[in-house]
Design a protein around this nucleic acid. Structure first.
Lengths: 189, 189
DNA sequence: GTCTATAAGGCGATAGAC
DNA sequence: GTCTATCGCCTTATAGAC
């Protein structure tokens, strides 16, 4: 556990706060108490709450990009799917949903720059999943029920919903159902 | 357009406010201004915000129950699916997502009675969809990639996510992808 | 039932000392 | 950079007149 600057700690705790309670569900006071500074110090780094959230979404997006980029696309598709799902599965049951999934419900309270960064995040997932389905298609003996790009939108949406509802039901059931569909349409080794 | 009591108007506008902005995104002041009363009058009908939201979820759930109950289960499965999807499709593009979909992201701010009512709502959808898939299964020539109950969870999740993200992207694309999968696994006439 | 008035505290944000 | 102090407004909720 290496030492973090105040700015880094602010981002880190903002990620957790939003993933737990959403944009309208946390305050500068909450964040200040977690980091151990006064609220005015937050304004030094992030003049407005909008600036803070924008940086949080960018950081979250950058981490996810690196993670997805690191998956070797020459592996068997089922193994690629497994690696894609791993950290999503790990996050379920922690009271934290996906940051972008949380913010999507509150989109009317968010600025256009934040929304644009959120759209990029969703596109990144859908683009990668579309590629996965396209790579897997020639190895299957039956065609998909819908084209790869549509299947990617459905699969990603079901995963997002699975993460959000895990907190409501206290079970990973819906996330695993989405994961089963994703793995189920991969050619099995 | 028939005349509504103040209590009815309060519920009606609460439904819209939550479906637009979520639980933490609207205030008694917002609601009072829409109905044309003072905030203290809201407290007369609904002592706390929690009481108000609980009644809103109950009302929303009751309406959906009546709607789904009215679908004739002896119709061809593809037609049942079409009738199920119709009002969901109609709602997209109105800046309003599903009430329960919105509240799911804010579950940590909600009381246990509200959560229980939300769970019932989700179960109602999943139960009906499971039944639909089971009725359709014998008419298909290939088996589903996953069991009916799991397919129901995935389909419902993808629809929910499609409604929420329609506001972020300004397109019904993701909702229609989920609808296409649902209709796509029905035996076609 | 609906109002006025107000309590008691939270909110994001800023000024200015150190 | 971080603090104290404060601004102006919003929040849910209550007391009590009419």
């Amino acid at each position: 556990m290496k030492t973090q600057s105040v700015r880094e700690q602010l981002i880190e705790h903002t990620l957790v706060l939003i993933r737990r309670r959403g944009f309208n569900g946390f305050s500068y006071r909450d964040l200040a108490e977690l980091v151990g500074v006064k609220t005015s110090s937050i304004h030094y780094y992030f003049p407005s709450k909008d600036d803070l959230v924008l940086e949080a979404v960018r950081e979250y997006s950058a981490r996810t990009y690196e993670r997805i980029r690191a998956i070797d696309t020459k592996l068997p598709p089922a193994e690629q799917a497994r690696q894609y799902l791993e950290p999503i599965r790990q996050g379920v049951g922690t009271d934290q949903a996906c940051l972008v999934g949380m913010l999507s419900a509150e989109v009317l309270s968010l600025s256009e720059p934040v929304r644009a960064t959120m759209r990029d995040y969703v596109h990144m997932h859908e683009h990668w999943l579309t590629g996965l389905f396209e790579r897997a298609q020639p190895l299957r003996d039956t065609p998909y029920p819908v084209p790869p790009a549509q299947l990617a939108e459905v699969a990603y949406g079901a995963l997002q919903s699975g993460l959000v509802t895990a907190r409501l039901f206290g079970t990973r059931e819906r996330l695993e159902a989405a994961a089963a569909l994703l793995v189920g349409v991969m050619p099995q080794p």
